[in-house]
Design a protein around this nucleic acid. Structure first.
Length: 272
DNA sequence: ACTGGATCCTGACTGC
DNA sequence: TGCAGTCAGGATCCAG
């Protein structure tokens, strides 16, 4: 599911309910996610206050008084806040965190590609955070930066902007959408695209991510917001999942191809 | 240095 | 109705 807009939507949904609240207990039904949930988690976190929830790329950082829990939603993970203890556990719901305001944080993840990671000190970032590139919505992600990093690279531009070490948070959906907005063909080698077109791509990435956040993310299948509602950006997708449908600009047929094993959608007429 | 493929796991869908 | 095969929003590791 979740690329940057869905994770940011999740963060915004959780913060008002859980920040400043004390975690009373944890109940875990399935420890085996992508990595096993540490056995000591329940004891270590009990009675700590959750000070704030941050996002870095597609990771959520739960900042407690004396620890940080890093969560990744994988392909199908979703957090939700409920109020009633009697709410029945869903199939593939793996854990619940009970807070002192009766808020209950639930995690649901059918494919179990998500994970939880526990850190007492974050001055040594775990490698998967340390290696991340800049946030795409920050000023560090600029046309100059993309130009310099892409010189000499033969990888298709779509793969290139999905590298989390280049820029953090873009996945398959928004890569396709941003390239459509920028009128760049996904297969074009990154190093062969000129500065002007890369500047357009940077603008397109920022625009599509901002609009998706404003719409509450994209719900294809598993993703729900923390109140159980879907995100509404799926209705605004121009190319992703629309093969055989007409391009909204030129009316020609959207194509689907496979690049590095991932479905890729584009308009062969608008994107050159 | 880069690329493609396999891998973790379940569910939805398609075609026979 | 059932069954096998294919495909999913991610990220890592490994071989070539």
């Amino acid at each position: 599911m979740p690329e940057l807009p869905e994770v940011e939507t999740t963060r915004r949904g959780l913060s008002p309910h859980l920040e400043g609240r004390r975690l009373q207990s944890i109940e875990i039904h399935q420890r085996n996610l992508r990595h096993p949930i540490p056995l000591f988690l329940e004891n270590k976190l009990a009675n700590q206050m959750l000070q704030r929830i941050e996002r870095r790329a597609k990771y959520l950082l739960f900042r407690f008084e004396r620890a940080t829990v890093i969560a990744h939603l994988g392909m199908s993970g979703a957090f939700r806040v409920i109020r009633e203890q009697s709410f029945p556990w869903k199939k593939h719901e793996h854990f619940r965190w009970y807070f002192d305001n009766n808020g209950i944080l639930c995690y649901h993840d059918p494919r179990r590609f998500g994970f939880l990671d526990y850190h007492e000190a974050l001055d040594h970032l775990p490698p998967y955070l340390a290696k991340l590139g800049p946030e795409p919505l920050s000023d560090d992600f600029s046309a100059d930066y993309l130009y310099q990093r892409s010189r000499g690279r033969s990888a298709p531009i779509k793969n290139f902007i999905m590298e989390q070490t280049l820029v953090a948070g873009i996945g398959n959906i928004y890569a396709c959408e941003a390239l459509f907005l920028a009128k760049i063909r996904p297969t074009t080698p990154a190093g062969k695209i000129g500065r002007v077109r890369l500047a357009r791509l940077v603008d397109a990435i920022k625009a599509v991510l901002s609009q998706a956040i404003a719409a509450g993310g994209t719900t294809l299948k598993d993703f729900i917001r923390t109140d159980g509602r879907p995100g509404y950006f799926a209705q605004r997708l121009e190319v992703y999942g629309r093969d055989e449908a007409p391009c909204s600009i030129c009316q020609k047929t959207i194509r689907r191809i496979v690049i590095s094993g991932r479905s890729t959608y584009y308009c062969a007429s608008c994107q050159r």
